[in-house]
């Protein structure tokens, strides 16, 4: 088994972030950050599905829950760097932006892309999640005892 190296975990994290980004978000940030590099398609954007699995009782045997839509693509920059994308939903332009971002993150432009594309995506995501969690927390029931009967 291959070791879980830090660079790999880093790449897993940004690819996951790009997969879950809202429609058009990554493309907009990418275009504001850099001029898109020239590339050739290794696999042009393609729509498909992934069968999502669950486990019986949450922890038991796996079962097929249902599918979700996914768009994927792969490309190679002129410098030879390969970028991949698997993103949720049906959006070829978003998949392209995600794959370019993935490729650029493996070049010397990585720090600029991280700062101007990935960090804002991460912030938007954690703000949205934080807000939902805070609203949920406000609906938490505080029980109090009215009368404790002894008979």
């Amino acid at each position: 088994m291959e070791e879980q190296t830090a660079p790999r975990q880093d790449r897993q994290a940004w690819m996951g972030l790009l997969a879950k980004a809202g429609q058009g978000q990554a493309a907009q940030l990418l275009d504001a950050a850099v001029t898109r590099p020239a590339f050739t398609w290794l696999r042009p954007p393609e729509l498909g599905s992934v069968m999502v699995r669950g486990r019986a009782s949450g922890t038991g045997a796996p079962f097929n829950l249902g599918e979700m839509t996914v768009t994927r693509c792969a490309l190679r920059l002129d410098c030879g760097t390969v970028g991949h994308a698997y993103i949720q939903g049906r959006n070829k332009a978003d998949a392209e932006a995600a794959a370019i971002t993935d490729a650029l993150m493996q070049t010397e432009q990585a720090s600029a892309v991280r700062e101007q594309v990935l960090n804002p995506l991460e912030q938007a995501r954690s703000a949205a999640k934080g807000s939902r969690a805070a609203k949920a927390a406000a609906t938490k029931v505080d029980f109090f005892t009215l009368v404790r009967g002894d008979d």
Binding site: G48, V52, R53, G54, R132
Partner: peptide, 21 residues
């Protein structure tokens, strides 16, 4: 759905880590 190629199957989702509403 029947028109979509299937890219694969996911790992079983971990509902214990759910961000609960």
């Amino acid at each position: 759905r029947t028109t979509l190629p299937r890219f694969g199957v996911s790992a079983p989702i971990d509902t214990e880590t759910m961000a609960c509403d």
